[in-house]
Design a protein around this nucleic acid. Structure first.
Length: 419
RNA sequence: GGGGAGAUACCCAAGUGGUCAAAGGGGACGGACUGUAAAUCCGUUGCCAUCGGCUUCGCAGGUUCAAAUCCUGCUCUCCCCA
């Protein structure tokens, strides 16, 4: 770096510092500074790539961590390239997995891709790229567009760019081999495809979780091979899920979906172990550590509730957080029945005498998946009728007038016999 | 291509002819405590049902009064050799 222009140097440092939040690896930091400097000097924004495979139909807070980073680049005037892994989704990324994932059909992938973008726009600015540059905030690409057009020869050529030795020294493959777990050859191909994406879109920077570092680095090699400047690889700390141990993922069911309703967002965040609060604040908010740390040590519940409300506001707009909190406090802290309990009317035909066996009632309400489960729930004293614990699993409930059914702490329904 | 090992419920894992709906652990759910945190304790964890019945141990057949357990074929996985 020349370093003659102090204004430029300051701007580079400002951007660089902001961008460091939540970042674990940056390959390399110096390159990033240099690239920022030349971008600013030339008025040519960096092309920042982030890709997701539409392997399920939900994005969650774990995805949001990197999406936020992408948004941060946008806010600094850079150009986001969002890759939908239409082709790679069919392969299945081995990163962070201890087992092979099932490959998906074309149809599933396309369906998922559609819902994905919508969810991503909760975090990323969506102005589409305009031809002449200008307000180019976002460019959406689907890697099916290039991969499905390529021929066999192209594919083999790509495969030749990687060695088996390098592949198997990758930690999660080593681990799986040691455990005797299967590894499909197709899983070796995945990083190459992801790397090729970087070549296709001429990425300056690629974002990902720490478990993506290997894949991101492959992109660098392929770019060099294609006579492009190698992308800077930035990995973000992976967001731990609700269990506090494993990374947030839909298949582990420890996630908070970006489309979850406010109450659920609030409640799930409240169930995050205290020890993780700092990580969540760092990765999912811009709140300075000096702000949340004192609160978290003085009043952890309050700090977490503030975080939870913030998440709900973020995903649903301003009053959602405080509203959710009010309902949450009422239900769990004050142990009161919520205001908006769903009402069910059972058709009279189903209850000729106006009575219904409690076990069937629970099944009808989907509070239990089977009669056996309903029985167990009752035997475990988990069912209340008008506030009183049900002890008899043979109870016939009189639906002549409305009754309040509660299963566990959070499932409520008001039921009466319909016409 | 040759040799060996293996596939058990949501996951890991015991069980090698009846007493096995299948030990143990994890997870999940419910209860107590609480801040839907952590820690701890208790209960439940195939389906239907009143005794009782029905379906389940990779898949398909077979032997037997009786199979997760024995036999045959198939599918999949791992290891060693080539």
């Amino acid at each position: 770096m020349g370093g003659e222009d102090p204004a430029l140097a300051r701007e580079v440092l400002r951007q660089f510092t902001l961008l460091q939040r939540g970042v674990v690896d940056c390959v390399s930091a110096d390159e990033l500074k240099r690239r920022l400097a030349s971008a600013i000097r030339a008025g040519r924004p960096l092309r920042v790539k982030l890709g997701f495979d539409p392997t399920s139909s939900d994005l969650h807070l774990g995805h949001a961590v990197v999406l936020r980073k992408l948004r941060q680049f946008q806010d600094l005037g850079h150009h986001a390239v969002f890759i939908v892994g239409g082709a790679t989704a069919m392969l299945g990324d081995p990163s962070g997995k201890d087992k092979t994932r099932p490959t998906l059909s074309r149809e599933q992938v396309e369906h998922n891709a559609a819902t994905y973008l919508e969810q991503a726009f909760k975090v990323v600015r969506r102005e589409e790229v305009s031809q002449g540059g200008g307000s180019a905030a976002l460019e959406v690409r689907n890697n099916a567009d290039w991969f499905l057009k390529q021929g066999f020869a192209d594919f083999i050529r790509l495969a030749s760019k990687m060695t088996v030795a390098r592949m198997i020294e990758r930690d999660n493959f080593t681990k799986r081999m040691k455990e005797g777990a299967p590894i499909g050859i197709h899983e070796f191909l995945y990083p190459l495809l992801q790397g090729q994406d970087s070549v296709e879109v001429r990425a300056d920077v690629e974002l990902g979780g720490t478990d993506q570092l290997f894949n991101l680095l492959v992109g660098r090699d392929l770019q060099v091979d294609a006579a492009q400047a190698p992308q800077i690889c930035m990995t973000m700390k992976v967001l731990p899920g609700l269990d506090g141990v494993q990374k947030m993922s839909k298949s582990l069911r420890n996630y908070v979906g970006l489309t979850f309703p406010p109450d659920e967002v609030f409640g799930k965040v409240m169930s995050v172990p205290d020890a993780l609060m700092g990580t969540w604040y760092t990765l999912l908010t811009d709140v300075a550590a000096e702000e949340w740390e004192p609160l978290a040590s003085r009043d952890p519940r309050e700090a977490k509730a503030a975080l939870a409300a913030r998440m709900a506001d973020w995903l649903h707009g301003a009053p959602a957080g405080s509203d959710a909190r009010a309902r949450f406090d009422k239900l769990f802290r004050d142990k009161e029945v919520p205001d908006d309990v769903e009402r069910h009317l059972l058709p009279a035909a189903e209850t000729p005498d106006g009575r219904l066996w409690i076990v069937d009632l629970l099944c009808r309400l989907k509070f239990a998946a089977s009669r056996g489960e309903a029985r167990r729930l009752i035997q475990g004293h988990g069912v209340k009728l008008d506030g009183a614990v049900v002890v008899d699993d043979k109870l016939e409930v009189d639906l002549g007038r409305e009754v309040l059914v509660q299963a566990g702490k959070r499932r409520f329904a008001r039921v009466a016999r319909g016409a």
